[in-house]
Design a protein around this nucleic acid. Sequence first.
DNA 1: TGACAAGGGTTATAACGTAACATAACATCA
DNA 2: TGATGTTATGTTACGTTATAACCCTTGTCA
Lengths: 170, 170
Amino acid sequence: MTSDATQPTTAFCQHDHNHCIDSAMAQARHLCQQRGVRLTPIRQRVLELVWQSHQPLGAYTLLGLLAEEGFNSAPPTIYRALEFLQHEGLIHKLASINAFTGCCNPGTPHEGHFFLCLSCHQALEIDTSTLQHSLQNSAGKHGFSIAQQTIEITGCCAQCQSKQNTENHG
Amino acid sequence: MTSDATQPTTAFCQHDHNHCIDSAMAQARHLCQQRGVRLTPIRQRVLELVWQSHQPLGAYTLLGLLAEEGFNSAPPTIYRALEFLQHEGLIHKLASINAFTGCCNPGTPHEGHFFLCLSCHQALEIDTSTLQHSLQNSAGKHGFSIAQQTIEITGCCAQCQSKQNTENHG
DNA sequence: TGACAAGGGTTATAACGTAACATAACATCA
DNA sequence: TGATGTTATGTTACGTTATAACCCTTGTCA
Ligand SMILES: [Zn+2]
Ligand SMILES: [Zn+2]
Ligand SMILES: [Zn+2]
Ligand SMILES: [Zn+2]
């Protein structure tokens, strides 16, 4: 048997992405039911589309995908769905690239902080708990009260680096 | 005499902002001359307009101000100037609010990291050197090679907090 | 003085996002 | 059931942010 349990389920790693999708959709259904909010067909489909890979997608890209499937394709449709999903903590917006990506841990409310690979365009949601201390420290020095954090680090992921090395030296 | 030397010259503090402007323009002229690039009238005026306060301004706001002064007012005018100023490290773009602000230390190339006050809309460029260790640590764990960092922390500055307290309790 | 590059003018369009109002679907209760 | 209020969606129009493409002027220099 394959040891699925040991596979990472994140960006920048080979993994069973269907597991990401299934897990995300199951959590979404569960959370929405628990909160008494409606994961309508449009909202559910948008969430699935966002989760189609770990590459964040723009609102109009998503809108185009919706349109292909016969859904309404006016801008408010997608922005309303995205607003709902963001509000429920099921997706994050990446301000630096105007795109949206699924949240890996929607159960606990939090802001998304990311590594973004410029080569494969995937986003990895990272844990910034060790940053938070120095950030709060800096805020304290200035008497600044933190509300929201946009932390988006671009660069090149390990996979893409090794690919590039292979190309150059092989 | 007043002790100007002890005054902070940053956002979120009362200070002689003319000093900010004069210093920024002097540095800009110096750096451009040193590098053999041209701080043309449009570019210079855009930089002055960006520096008119510590509140970041949008491209079209700046374009409107240019237009009022008889400059050309088509979008490429402002985007070209902003691109030049960014490239020379004289301004930073704030991705989370699509706005531009002057760089406080253009001599040493760096990325801008900011506290943004939601109340007075000023931006304070902060030192994130203490963050960098944990960020590089996190990147190292994932084999991620960092290229560029978008770090924009919104909240409420000390001045605005004390104003709000005065309003509520006074 | 002709090649060339940099800067800027002009027009058009792409990309991203929202306001405002009408209608449909759903829930609730007399 | 039917009235009523709420939530979700449809629809049109517009606002905001950013870039592509083309051309002309100006300065530089062999
Ligand atoms: Zn996955
Ligand atoms: Zn990659
Ligand atoms: Zn100042
Ligand atoms: Zn403030």
